[in-house]
Amino acid sequence: MGILEVQNVNKRFGGLQALNNVNLSVREGSVHAIIGPNGAGKSTLLNCFVGRLMPDTGSVMFNGQSLLGLKPHQINQAGVSRVFQTPEIFADLSLWENVMIASFARRDGAYRLNAFGRVKADGEIRDHAERNLSDVGLASKRNMIASALSRGDKRRLELAMCLAQDPKLLLLDEPTAGMSRADTNNTIDLLKRIGESRGITKVVIEHDMHVVFSLADRITVMAQGTPIVEDAPENIKGNPKVQEAYLGGAHA
């Protein structure tokens, strides 16, 4: 029984069957990569996990609790954090404030009216945010406004915000898209290091095979809304079904 159990999930957009009977089981503490050609339904599936989309049928169970019908903030409070394909950060605020918001959400829950406390006088939150900024290597830039960061740094900031919440499950949607090779390798190291020290389960969507094979313990290949293969990384490369999905049915 995995920490995330997806059963018979279907999602249709008009005439397009985006997800077709998806079954997926993610083992606790593992790094599970989902790969597949464009339009395979990877991001759609992730959207069903965080409350952005509601599947037409099926169930999504996290830690024994159904995620379907929950609001995004409830799913997050249950322990699921997500890094988006394009970095979603608070662009007008400083890096510190960005991470402090996540720290407050972790400590104070979905709503707590604290109109007379002082953000900067809250040592616990400050230290916690500081620690998480250091973890991703952004501590020296903490007073910068987030919109001034490079794309790679924005992603690392978003990762710091997600990590500050101590999630049980971290969803990463193409965490290295648009990064240079050096930045990509830094991110891989960062994710590996955090994976070891905190034991967070991760689901990664990625196109870059270098990233996938460096990180994943388990790989699911999707094509046309359906998982076609699930296996360990070393068995995936030679699988004829996978080659067919990527090369588009060579025997046709």
Binding site: V50, K71, P72, H73, N76, Q77, S81, R82, F84, E88, I89, F90, A91, D92, L93, E97, M100, I101, A102, F104, A105, R106, D108, G109, A110, R112, L113, N114, A115, F116, G117, R118, V119, D122, I125, M161, Q165
Partner: peptide, 21 residues
């Protein structure tokens, strides 16, 4: 205050705030 910080976060990126719990 933390409340004021949350309000500024709403202006900047309400969706992210929801996904931050």
């Amino acid at each position: 205050s933390p409340f004021g910080l949350m309000l500024r976060a709403i202006r900047t990126n309400q969706a992210r705030l929801n996904y931050t719990g």
